[in-house]
Amino acid sequence: MGSVRTNRYSIVSSEEDGMKLATMAVANGFGNGKSKVHTRQQCRSRFVKKDGHCNVQFINVGEKGQRYLADIFTTCVDIRWRWMLVIFCLAFVLSWLFFGCVFWLIALLHGDLDTDYKDDDDKSKVSKACVSEVNSFTAAFLFSIETQTTIGYGFRCVTDECPIAVFMVVFQSIVGCIIDAFIIGAVMAKMAKPKKRNETLVFSHNAVIAMRDGKLCLMWRVGNLRKSHLVEAHVRAQLLKSRITSEGEYIPLDQIDINVGFDSGIDRIFLVSPITIVHEIDEDSPLYDLSKQDIDNADFEIVVILEGMVEATAMTTQCRSSYLANEILWGHRYEPVLFEEKHYYKVDYSRFHKTYEVPNTPLCSARDLAEKKYILSNANSFCYENEVALTSKEEEEDSENGVPESTSTDSPPGIDLHNQASVPLEPRPLRRESEIGSRR
């Protein structure tokens, strides 16, 4: 089982795998120059863009038009607004034209077009017409509009002379109601789609790998820009990579689940303020055997998904993003964004995407760390350097704002901070800030 798991979770494809794949392509008759073999020097295209759209195009789909027309309502909801407006206008105009032609044909076959009612006051002739005051196609078209929109100006009306005319008036009224219901329903469904809710759900630009509770963890940050909550919010993550099976089958995008606390339930989050999602790199993680150097040379993509129900409509929305291997910062942490004021908490989104480097973060893999092949620094050293990194950030910001350097908390000259780390230190809580992250 261990060997199978290692093969499945191998992220960085070796040169031997690339040569094996190329040999397979030639042997199977696919070596026509169009096949692409992804190596370390040639990274694959992003499968999920940063804005959440999937970078996929469908080609050679059989009976595409028929399949889309069979699900016309979903098609109308998914198309762009400009095409929705075109369909909206065409549906009414074509129905008016169709029934206008029908009423014109009825008048033509009944002989109503030969009668001039402007110079004739004989009401008996008017009563013999199928539709009064309809003696041309324009008049028939206007009567069709008046019937379907129930305008009723009063000059044109159907008589009991022709039952077919009466039937067409009733039929057009029913068709008009159906068109109204369909168009209004599609427009309302399109307006109520929770897709735009994703514009106020954000992911951090970069993911980070750092120590948390004595273990290497992959972390990324999510935030909600609205005050309205995302009900039943939960997160998922998958690692996408290519691999070759033991039988020699090439899988271009193998999807591997990344555990973010599904078993323990901590994948469900209360997204009021930005939260750091934590994936513990343990023996079940696809990143277990990867060191910093392996991450730098790897070719994979981590897709992160945030799902929840919109509070206003109770409709489920899904926000997506992805991180390539070069977008994962090893040995970094996110800057705090949640600050405790006197009577409330304040979230500073200008710090949302910012990170700071944490010294002495192990550069080895989580496996080597678990097997004690890498000796961690003293816990006080880690905490102290973590505090120094934050303090230096604040000093830089104070210097930019014009604060005198004498007010900063610099260490005395001639003292090495790293050498001082081995000395037991008193706890130094942050002056006014605390970061709330997901705790395992």
Results as ranks from 00 to 15, higher is better:
residue 4 V to I: 12
residue 6 T to W: 04
residue 7 N to K: 14
residue 7 N to H: 12
residue 8 R to D: 14
residue 11 I to W: 11
residue 12 V to G: 15
residue 17 D to Q: 10
residue 20 K to I: 07
residue 23 T to K: 06
residue 31 G to M: 03
residue 31 G to F: 04
residue 32 N to D: 11
residue 42 Q to H: 04
residue 42 Q to L: 10
residue 43 C to H: 09
residue 43 C to W: 06
residue 45 S to I: 03
residue 50 K to D: 03
residue 54 C to R: 15
residue 55 N to V: 03
residue 56 V to T: 15
residue 57 Q to M: 05
residue 59 I to S: 15
residue 60 N to L: 04
residue 62 G to A: 15
residue 63 E to S: 15
residue 64 K to Y: 05
residue 65 G to L: 14
residue 66 Q to Y: 10
residue 66 Q to V: 09
residue 67 R to T: 04
residue 67 R to N: 12
residue 68 Y to H: 09
residue 68 Y to R: 09
residue 69 L to V: 12
residue 72 I to W: 06
residue 72 I to S: 15
residue 76 C to P: 14
residue 76 C to Y: 05
residue 78 D to L: 12
residue 78 D to T: 14
residue 79 I to A: 06
residue 82 R to A: 08
residue 83 W to K: 11
residue 84 M to N: 05
residue 85 L to P: 12
residue 88 F to E: 04
residue 89 C to W: 05
residue 91 A to C: 05
residue 91 A to I: 09
residue 92 F to K: 09
residue 92 F to P: 09
residue 94 L to V: 11
residue 98 F to W: 01
residue 99 F to Y: 09
residue 102 V to G: 05
residue 105 L to F: 03
residue 106 I to T: 14
residue 110 H to K: 01
residue 111 G to Y: 02
residue 111 G to T: 05
residue 114 D to G: 15
residue 118 K to M: 02
residue 119 D to I: 00
residue 122 D to K: 00
residue 124 S to D: 12
residue 127 S to M: 15
residue 127 S to Q: 09
residue 129 A to D: 04
residue 130 C to H: 02
residue 132 S to E: 11
residue 133 E to T: 04
residue 134 V to G: 01
residue 135 N to K: 08
residue 140 A to D: 01
residue 141 F to E: 01
residue 142 L to T: 02
residue 143 F to G: 00
residue 145 I to H: 05
residue 145 I to M: 11
residue 145 I to T: 05
residue 146 E to K: 03
residue 146 E to S: 03
residue 147 T to Y: 03
residue 148 Q to R: 03
residue 151 I to V: 10
residue 151 I to M: 07
residue 152 G to L: 02
residue 153 Y to F: 04
residue 153 Y to N: 07
residue 154 G to H: 07
residue 154 G to D: 03
residue 155 F to L: 05
residue 157 C to Q: 07
residue 164 I to P: 03
residue 167 F to W: 03
residue 168 M to P: 01
residue 169 V to F: 06
residue 171 F to P: 00
residue 174 I to W: 10
residue 176 G to T: 03
residue 177 C to V: 08
residue 178 I to H: 07
residue 182 F to M: 04
residue 183 I to C: 14
residue 184 I to L: 07
residue 186 A to Y: 03
residue 187 V to H: 07
residue 191 M to K: 04
residue 191 M to F: 05
residue 193 K to I: 05
residue 194 P to V: 03
residue 195 K to H: 04
residue 198 N to V: 09
residue 202 V to N: 07
residue 203 F to R: 01
residue 203 F to M: 08
residue 204 S to E: 00
residue 205 H to W: 06
residue 208 V to R: 01
residue 208 V to H: 00
residue 208 V to Y: 01
residue 209 I to Q: 01
residue 210 A to P: 00
residue 215 K to G: 08
residue 218 L to Q: 01
residue 218 L to N: 00
residue 221 R to W: 00
residue 222 V to I: 09
residue 222 V to G: 02
residue 224 N to W: 04
residue 231 V to F: 11
residue 231 V to P: 04
residue 232 E to Q: 06
residue 232 E to G: 11
residue 233 A to Q: 07
residue 233 A to H: 13
residue 234 H to I: 09
residue 235 V to R: 01
residue 236 R to M: 06
residue 236 R to P: 01
residue 239 L to D: 00
residue 240 L to K: 02
residue 241 K to N: 10
residue 245 T to M: 14
residue 246 S to I: 08
residue 248 G to M: 07
residue 251 I to R: 15
residue 251 I to Y: 14
residue 252 P to L: 08
residue 254 D to A: 12
residue 255 Q to E: 08
residue 257 D to S: 10
residue 258 I to G: 02
residue 258 I to Y: 01
residue 259 N to M: 11
residue 260 V to Y: 01
residue 262 F to L: 12
residue 268 R to M: 04
residue 268 R to A: 07
residue 269 I to Q: 11
residue 271 L to Q: 04
residue 274 P to Y: 07
residue 282 D to N: 14
residue 283 E to C: 10
residue 285 S to D: 01
residue 285 S to V: 01
residue 286 P to W: 02
residue 287 L to C: 01
residue 287 L to V: 01
residue 293 Q to N: 14
residue 294 D to T: 06
residue 297 N to C: 10
residue 298 A to F: 02
residue 303 V to Y: 06
residue 306 L to K: 02
residue 306 L to S: 01
residue 308 G to I: 06
residue 311 E to N: 12
residue 315 M to G: 08
residue 317 T to A: 12
residue 317 T to Y: 11
residue 318 Q to E: 07
residue 319 C to E: 11
residue 320 R to I: 12
residue 320 R to M: 06
residue 321 S to R: 09
residue 322 S to M: 00
residue 323 Y to V: 07
residue 324 L to H: 11
residue 329 L to K: 09
residue 329 L to E: 06
residue 330 W to C: 01
residue 333 R to T: 15
residue 333 R to N: 15
residue 336 P to I: 06
residue 338 L to V: 13
residue 339 F to N: 15
residue 339 F to P: 02
residue 345 Y to R: 05
residue 351 R to F: 12
residue 355 T to R: 02
residue 357 E to T: 05
residue 358 V to M: 12
residue 359 P to C: 08
residue 360 N to T: 13
residue 363 L to N: 12
residue 363 L to P: 15
residue 364 C to G: 07
residue 371 E to R: 06
residue 372 K to L: 05
residue 373 K to Q: 14
residue 373 K to E: 07
residue 373 K to M: 08
residue 374 Y to A: 14
residue 375 I to Q: 15
residue 376 L to W: 08
residue 377 S to Q: 10
residue 379 A to F: 03
residue 379 A to E: 08
residue 379 A to I: 04
residue 382 F to N: 03
residue 384 Y to H: 14
residue 384 Y to V: 15
residue 385 E to Q: 04
residue 386 N to W: 03
residue 387 E to D: 12
residue 390 L to S: 15
residue 391 T to Q: 11
residue 391 T to S: 12
residue 391 T to I: 05
residue 394 E to C: 08
residue 400 E to P: 12
residue 401 N to C: 10
residue 405 E to I: 10
residue 405 E to W: 06
residue 405 E to Q: 06
residue 407 T to D: 14
residue 407 T to R: 11
residue 407 T to P: 08
residue 409 T to W: 09
residue 409 T to D: 14
residue 410 D to H: 06
residue 414 G to N: 11
residue 417 L to G: 14
residue 422 S to V: 07
residue 422 S to P: 11
residue 423 V to P: 15
residue 425 L to F: 07
residue 429 P to W: 10
residue 429 P to N: 10
residue 430 L to M: 10
residue 431 R to Y: 08
residue 433 E to C: 09
residue 435 E to W: 07
